[in-house]
Structures are given as C-alpha cells and as structure tokens.
Amino acid sequence: MSMSSKLRQTTIGRSIWRTPDAVTERDRAAKHWASFLLHIYPVKVRRDELSFRYSWFLGVISLVLFASLFVSGVYLMFFYVPSPATAYGDIENLQTEVAFGQFIRNVHRWSAHLMVLAVAAHMSRVFYRGAYKPPREFNWVIGVILLVMTLLMSFTGYLLPWDQLAYWAITVGSSMAAFVPWAGDQAQQTLLAGDSVGSATLVRFYVLHVFVLPGTMVMLVMFHLWRWRKDSMLSHPEGGDHE
C-alpha cells in the first residue's frame, strides 16, 4: 500500500478526502462527485471534447492565463501605491530593487497580452463550431461580456505604471467616451473623475483593476463554467454533423 493510500485511510485522511482509493471507474466517478476541486468539471464528457481540434483548448488557456494574472497581480500589489507621486517610482523600484520584481511584472504583462489573444480566439473558435446555438445562447452572451471585461482590465491596468505610454493612451481612450451622444461629457468625466487624467483617475482605475473587474470576472467565469458543465453532455443540435 502506498504512502498516500495509507494517509487516506487514517481518521484525518478520511475526513478530508472522504472516499477510498479509486480502483474502478465507478470509484473514480464517486470520487469526482465528492471532490470540491473537480466539481467544476462534469464526470464524463463526449469523446470529441478530448481532441485538440474540438476547441483548441482556448477556454482552458484563457483560464490559465487569468490565474497567472491573478497570482502575479497580487505580488505586484505589495509594491505599488496608486498615486501620481509614487506610482512611477514604485514600478522603477519594483524593477530594480525587488527580487524577481521585473520578472513578475513581465509575467503579468505578457499574460495580459496573451489573454486578450486567447479570449478573442476562443470566441472565434466557438463561433466557427456553431457552439453558441441553442441551448447554449446565454453562455455565448456571458462569454462576450467576459471578452469586453478582459479588454477593460487591460485598459485600466495600462494606466497604472503612470508613464508617458500610460498617460496618453488613457487620455485618448477616455476621450472617445466624450463622443457618446447626450451624456458624452458626463461619461468621460465620470470615467476620469475630472476633466483630465489625474490622481483621482489613477485611484479609480486601480480600484476597478484590482477589485471590481476581477471580482465580477471571477463570478462570471464560474457561471460560464457551470453552464458549460451542465451542457457538456448534450450532443450537437444536429447530432454532430460538423465533420
């Protein structure tokens, strides 16, 4: 009996994992059912979901990048104060004084770029497969909202280093809001918390970037995955005539 199996047989082990070692497929299903970490997955899927060409695994890729952004972002938060007086210096300090600071910032930056790419590609792949057709219409809608939120995350994060790149990109981007009919100026001023990009804008974008948007995204992703799980056993509307 292996070490881990012995551990599982103890009183404490059984209280954590709850089910015995999986030997048969039935054991595995029971275990899957009881597992917290696995509960976002269905117990079984259709065989074609295993192949690369089914989805190109773009949804998983997006999720992994989101996790990478979450973790690296938490590290960055320890070294960053969102104020025009400190923000730029904090980034310089992070890159030169903090161990692995530059590396963590690079991971965050490249993960962000790749995530925009992955989410957009995921949407295109879902479209070409026709995987938005009934009964999956609403999960497509959630996906589009998640795409928009991914772009908003990038947009708000872009301001935080407070360099020339950041300042003018946000100035130009937010000026587009001013052309919204009727409420344009109001919309832009609410976005910027003033007439132009300033300290209030930085705080506003920071709160959106580290709390409001990621929090909302986590909830939407859970909903998105839950619906994928519910629908995963359904065959295609026309019985998989794709190939």
Binding site: Q189, A193, G194
Partner: peptide, 9 residues
C-alpha cells in the same frame, strides 16, 4: 459618489 464634482476645473 462617482460622478465628477468639477473640482479643479
């Protein structure tokens, strides 16, 4: 709370 109060302008 969030709308601009016009301060500074």
């Amino acid at each position: 709370v969030l709308r601009a109060n016009g301060a500074g302008a």
